[in-house]
Amino acid sequence: MLKIKNLKVNTETEISILKGLNLDVNEGEVHAIMGPNGSGKSTLASVISGDPKYVIKEGVLEFLGEDVSEMDPEERAAIGLFLSFQYPVEIPGISLNNFIKTALNQKQKSLGLEPFSAKEILARIKENANALKINLDFIKRSVNVGFSGGEKKRAEIFQMLMLNPKLSILDETDSGLDIDALKIVASGVNKLRSENNSFIIITHYQRLLDYIKPDFVHVLSDGKIIKSGGPEIAKMLEEKGYDWI
């Protein structure tokens, strides 16, 4: 599904961040990426989603067999990529409700499909809001404006469920969440998890992986994946820290 080979990425100011990264994600797999601060985890997430702040210098970035390295972020979203932001952006004046409707129907449009009817959208909103224990009044509020840390992350997972992406990247979605919120977020991910949908979960804590069982765990350090393996790696890191590697 996602194929990354020898990916080298710089910032606009020519600072090298990813220095030859390799990663393969297949249908139905959940990959966890861990690593010390500043190792390039968020950059990897942003680059896959098409953030224009980063420049790909070298390497392969394919999604569903297609080179996506020069696609606009909206095109990548249309074919099934989703990024849950580490710091979701506040958008004053636009309700979450309106935004998700616009996003859904823009996605339909770019896929050449008919827009959803208001009734269909409402049914989906209700179902997904219920699953995440989100109050419908909450959806009428401006996107992320005045949301608590936990509410922001929940809103991200809500949008993920609404857009039903093939590959979801969760960038530190668990940071700053209490145990109850963590469980709700994890249940959202598990709801979407299937043999067709894949996930990349960026986290600092093994705790989240108790609720979302990863198939693979990778350690990213200084712009490269330096260790890959099963869930046991996360447990070792939690006990011994990154010096262990």
């Binding site: 606009d72 909206e74 958008i91 859904l104 770019s110 857009l163």
Partner: peptide, 24 residues
Amino acid sequence: FYLRSRGVPEKEAIKLLISGFLTD
């Protein structure tokens, strides 16, 4: 970028941000 990453094309996203700005 946030709006675009959710599938809203750049032109539409700018419109949305403008309408949000003027809503107050």
